[in-house]
Simulated assay, not measured.
Amino acid sequence: MRGKIIQALAGFYDVECEGVIYRTRARGNFRKKGKTPYVGDLVEFSAENPQEGYILAIHERKNALVRPPIVNVDQAVVIMSAREPDFNANLLDRFLVLLEYKDIHPIIYISKMDLLEDEEVLLAYAAVYEAMGYPFITQMSDLLPYLKDKITVFMGQTGVGKSTLLNKIAPDLALETGEISDSLGRGRHTTRMVKLYHVHGGLIADTPGFSALDYEVKTAPDLNSAFVDIEKVSANCKFRSCTHTHEPACAVKSAAEAGEIAAFRYDDYLQLLSEIENRRETYKKVLKRK
């Protein structure tokens, strides 16, 4: 039989096949090969009854997230709050870079709009991101149509209200929520496992909040590709290996100076490029000591 893993917990994998959920385990040869089934995997399995089955094979994945451990994701709703914590374009760009690198379509959702006194600045950000093809949504009703027929991950900084939003979308889930800490200005982590839920014609996953984002983009070319606005312009750079920092006839620098690329986006690109280069230098120093 063939099905999709919708939950993984304590060595058991719940596989959905034609509307029936089968509790399965992975065959021992997966451990020998260093393979681990993940939520979202399309698998071949056998089962004598819904409570006792075995995963036999894992189909090829189109993408995979490390944290949360989930695969074959179609899109991700990146939740950023307007206030408490304040909207952070740099953190949003870090999420977008990761998602572009993983070939996962981003949808930007802004929570806590009721706490915002002046929307002008946020609307300026919205214009930039929408011009790049990213939906920039502030109302739950506008988000729901995007969920149909997709596997969607909800992600964002801790305290922005992911579980609160999901409880509004699907009250039956009754996901645990946490209060914002006044002293830390951030929320407690409330999501403890990854599970796919049937909601509004699609599958959605709540995921752990992030105090920091695991960063997987390790090269300048990959970073260039993950900034869609920069990649589009970089085709006109004089040098194919242009990093858009010091090279002559750089189309990206010219576009940033002319306002064709938003200044904050170019600054975020430079910051992330610097972090990549610093990690590379640190790695070289470690190798020399060995």
Score class of each variant (00 low, 15 high):
Phe30His: 06
Met1Ile: 11
His200Thr: 08
Gly259Asn: 04
Ser181Pro: 06
Ser111Phe: 14
Lys150Glu: 13
Leu96Arg: 04
Asp182Gly: 07
Ala64Leu: 08
Asp268Ile: 08
Lys290Tyr: 00
Gly187Glu: 00
Arg192Met: 04
Lys32Asp: 11
Leu42Cys: 07
Val77Asp: 03
Leu287Trp: 01
Ile104Leu: 09
Leu122Cys: 05
Ile104Glu: 06
Arg23Tyr: 01
Glu260Thr: 09
Asp93Gln: 12
Ser141Leu: 11
Tyr129Ile: 04
Thr158Lys: 12
Ile230Asp: 07
Tyr197Cys: 01
Thr24Gln: 03
Ala258Ser: 14
Leu92Tyr: 09
Leu287Val: 03
Ala131Pro: 02
Gly34Gln: 07
Val97Arg: 00
Ser254Arg: 08
Lys33Glu: 14
His200Lys: 12
Ile276Asp: 11
Leu196Tyr: 12
Lys285Ser: 02
Gln75Arg: 02
Asp172Cys: 02
Pro85Val: 09
Thr158Met: 12
Val43Ala: 02
Arg2Ile: 09
His59Pro: 00
Glu247Tyr: 00
Leu184Trp: 02
Ile261Val: 13
Leu56Cys: 10
Thr177Ser: 10
Thr219Ile: 02
Leu65Ile: 05
Ile104Met: 08
Lys4Ile: 12
Ala262Thr: 02
Asp93Val: 05
Phe30Ser: 04
Asp93Gly: 10
Phe30Leu: 05
Pro50Lys: 01
Ile21Glu: 02
Ile58Leu: 15
Asp182Met: 03
Asp142Cys: 08
Val160Ala: 12
Val73Pro: 10
Leu270Ile: 07
Gly159Val: 08
Val71Cys: 10
Pro68Gln: 06
Ala124Arg: 15
Asp206Pro: 10
Leu98Val: 13
Asp149Met: 11
Gly19Lys: 08
Thr164Glu: 03
Gly159Met: 08
Val121Leu: 15
Ala57Gly: 05
Pro106Ser: 05
Ser141Gln: 14
Phe30Gly: 03
Ala226Pro: 00
Asp149Pro: 08
Lys284Thr: 04
His198Met: 10
Ala220Thr: 12
Asp41Ala: 00
Val160Glu: 04
Val286Ser: 00
Lys288Gln: 14
Glu16Trp: 03
Ala47Pro: 08
Gly3Tyr: 09
Ala57Gln: 15
Pro37Phe: 05
Ser181Thr: 12
Tyr54Asp: 05
Tyr38Ser: 09
Ser254Pro: 00
Pro135His: 12
Leu147Gly: 03
Pro221Tyr: 03
Gln51Ser: 13
Asp118Gln: 12
Thr36Asn: 14
Asp142Phe: 06
Tyr101Leu: 10
Leu91Ala: 00
Thr282Arg: 13
Leu213Phe: 13
Gly11Pro: 01
Asn224Cys: 09
Ile230Gln: 04
